[in-house]
Design a protein around this nucleic acid. Sequence first.
DNA 1: CTCGTTGCAAATCCTTTGCACGTCC
DNA 2: GGACGTGCAAAGGATTTGCAACGAG
Lengths: 159, 159
Amino acid sequence: MSEQSLASIKTSLQEGGFKLTPQREATVKVLLEKDHLSAEEIFMHLKQTNPDIGLATVYRTLEILTQLNITHKVLFEDGLARYDIRRESNKQFHLHLLCMECGKIKEIYDDLISDLEKEIEKKYHFQVEDHRLIFHGICTDCYQKRQNKTPELSAETRK
Amino acid sequence: MSEQSLASIKTSLQEGGFKLTPQREATVKVLLEKDHLSAEEIFMHLKQTNPDIGLATVYRTLEILTQLNITHKVLFEDGLARYDIRRESNKQFHLHLLCMECGKIKEIYDDLISDLEKEIEKKYHFQVEDHRLIFHGICTDCYQKRQNKTPELSAETRK
DNA sequence: CTCGTTGCAAATCCTTTGCACGTCC
DNA sequence: GGACGTGCAAAGGATTTGCAACGAG
């Protein structure tokens, strides 16, 4: 499942002059398990196994991992950054579906974007190295729920 | 050029129960001139014509405009939100090219994405209402500059 | 020893809020 | 004179930084 193994990440870290400390290892393990977690969420998970870990360490680790291109930082509209391990499968084709109703984020791997990328490179002479694509909308579940309830919920999505 | 005129925006505001105050008008004018400005940048521009305006007012105005769907708020990876007027032409098809070398943001209107949207709706039963697409890469200018300089600049893009 | 790493607390940055004062019907 | 808007200052929340202590080689 995870072509990005702990071992390969350790190597990357070392090549960058960093060590795989227990805190970093634990952080990476969390990242390997779950995607698009925020720093705070990762911190919470870590607390269970490493109660002494500090939030700052998590941020520092995530910064390093992102610099080394091991991890992918994405800023969501709620102002929170989420982090994903870059796996082989999502290195290129990776997009999010964010439901505006329930807030759930679904992850999609699909190469539909790679065509778009090629188009962009050709049409605009822009060398694409990465992308970030999020669709905002209504997920299947919420759509169905809507059908059964009052038909005008669309505007009330704000706090 | 701007199908979104001051007049039509005034109407939208009033329909939403808001007034087009001088501060709001000035803010809208800035937004009509330039795209993807941050709140701070908009504030700077405004200072020239309305020296007494407060940053908070700018934020409040932007919030209203975004709620009314007049403006589009996009969070960039630097943690700053930028705002664009939603014009007819970019209401649907709107993407950014962010150069990782010089930091410039170029805006593209292209309906390539609408096909993708349809695909997503079909394949994943997700009703798309909006999207946010940014390509990270190297713009034409920087790409050409690179060719003339040392060939290994790729890793040093950090502060 | 030395250097990278850590936890904590303080600092920072962007953004939001509280509040008293203005303004417009 | 009540509701909406404003500027300012303070608060807020996420992230970063300074620093003394720690730990492996």
